[in-house]
Simulated assay, not measured.
Amino acid sequence: MLCLDHILSRVTMYLSMGRNHKTHAWSPCELFNQDVCQNNYVVMVLNRPIPTEFSRKFVVNLWSKAALRVTVDGGTNHWLSWIKLNNYDNHSDSYPDIITGDMDSVSNDVLDYFSKRNKNLKIVSTPDQSETDFTKALKEVHKRTVDYNLKVDTVFVLIDSSGRFDQIVGNVNTLFKAQNVIPNVNVILLAGNSLTWLLIGNVTHSIKIPIELRNKHRWCGLIPMGRPCTVTTTGLKWNLSNTVLEFGKLVSTSNTYGEDSVVTIKSDNEVIWSMCIEDLL
């Protein structure tokens, strides 16, 4: 059963999006409230270790409540290592629903382990090297949601933001591609101390900021990727007013919050939003 507050927040979001997609309300930090009952999201594990900042309770809650659980290539190895280390491997809900990727990193022993324990497991090889495994995994998620009429609104992707820079940029590139790969679904990168996602252009984005982050003046940033963005904000300590963000000129990193519980952002082009979450874990 969905919690009333969660239902109301989703209804508000969809109603606002329905008006020509001119506004979009975000409350992703609800994810860290263990009492929030939701099961309309996907959790995906990429080929990086599960962030050590995440408690066992948080990871189990995130994984077990998901409508669909996906491990991507070598991420399957990391997931098995984590569930064994945290004594979660004997729980039936600890197994992925889909394992996908070009299969150059996942161990055959790991595939056998999950295949024997989840008879409904779908293993999908995606050898096409013109796309990253992350992008291809989103395509598989989209197929699953269509085939099974599965209603999801968000994909939370477990990553490690301290890894290879080329892979970090590749993950950001997939955020841009996701608009076409899995339409009308939010894709959010969940690292050990941050949430990162794409804000589409010509929309007023309203982001709810927990009081813990505001009180400690935690960092946040707006990163223009690919082309300049003209951005206006409210709720930040250093707000922007029709300010052009562009590499080689101004990039809004190491910003923080004012006193408002909501940050609003409007940009004429897509812009990346990233925010600290360390006080919520």
Rank of each mutant, 00 (worst) to 15 (best):
C3Y: 15
L4E: 05
I7K: 00
I7W: 00
L8M: 11
V11M: 15
V11C: 05
M13C: 05
L15K: 11
S16L: 07
G18W: 02
G18H: 02
R19G: 10
K22T: 08
A25F: 06
Q34C: 10
Q34T: 05
D35A: 04
V36W: 00
C37T: 05
Q38R: 00
Y41M: 02
V42N: 01
L46K: 02
R48T: 12
P49W: 15
P49M: 11
E53K: 13
F58S: 06
W63N: 01
W63M: 07
S64E: 14
S64F: 14
L68I: 11
L68N: 03
D73L: 09
T76G: 06
W79V: 02
K84W: 13
D89W: 09
P96W: 04
D97I: 06
I99M: 15
T100I: 10
T100H: 02
D104F: 09
S105I: 05
V106L: 07
V106I: 08
V106W: 03
S107M: 12
V110M: 15
D112R: 12
R117N: 08
K122S: 07
S125T: 06
S125G: 09
T126Q: 13
P127R: 08
D128T: 14
S130R: 09
S130C: 09
E131F: 12
T132V: 05
K136E: 04
A137T: 04
L138F: 08
K151D: 10
V155P: 00
V157P: 01
D160G: 08
S161A: 12
S161V: 15
G163P: 03
Q167C: 15
I168G: 04
V169L: 10
V169Q: 05
T174F: 08
L175G: 01
F176C: 09
Q179N: 08
N180L: 04
N186R: 09
N186I: 07
L189M: 07
L190N: 03
L190K: 03
G192H: 09
N193Q: 11
S194G: 13
S194P: 07
L195D: 01
L195W: 06
T196R: 12
L199E: 04
I200Y: 07
I200V: 12
T204A: 14
K208N: 01
I209Y: 00
L213A: 05
L213I: 13
R214A: 03
N215W: 13
R218S: 09
W219C: 11
M225H: 14
R227L: 15
T230K: 08
V231L: 11
V231T: 09
T232G: 05
T234I: 14
G235R: 01
L236M: 11
L236S: 06
L236H: 11
W238N: 12
N239A: 10
T243Q: 12
V244F: 10
V244N: 10
L245R: 02
E246K: 14
V251A: 12
T253P: 03
T253K: 12
S261D: 09
V262W: 05
V263Y: 01
T264G: 05
K266T: 06
E270K: 11
E270H: 15
W273V: 02
M275T: 04
M275F: 14
M275I: 15
C276W: 11
I277V: 14
E278H: 09
L281M: 13
L281A: 15
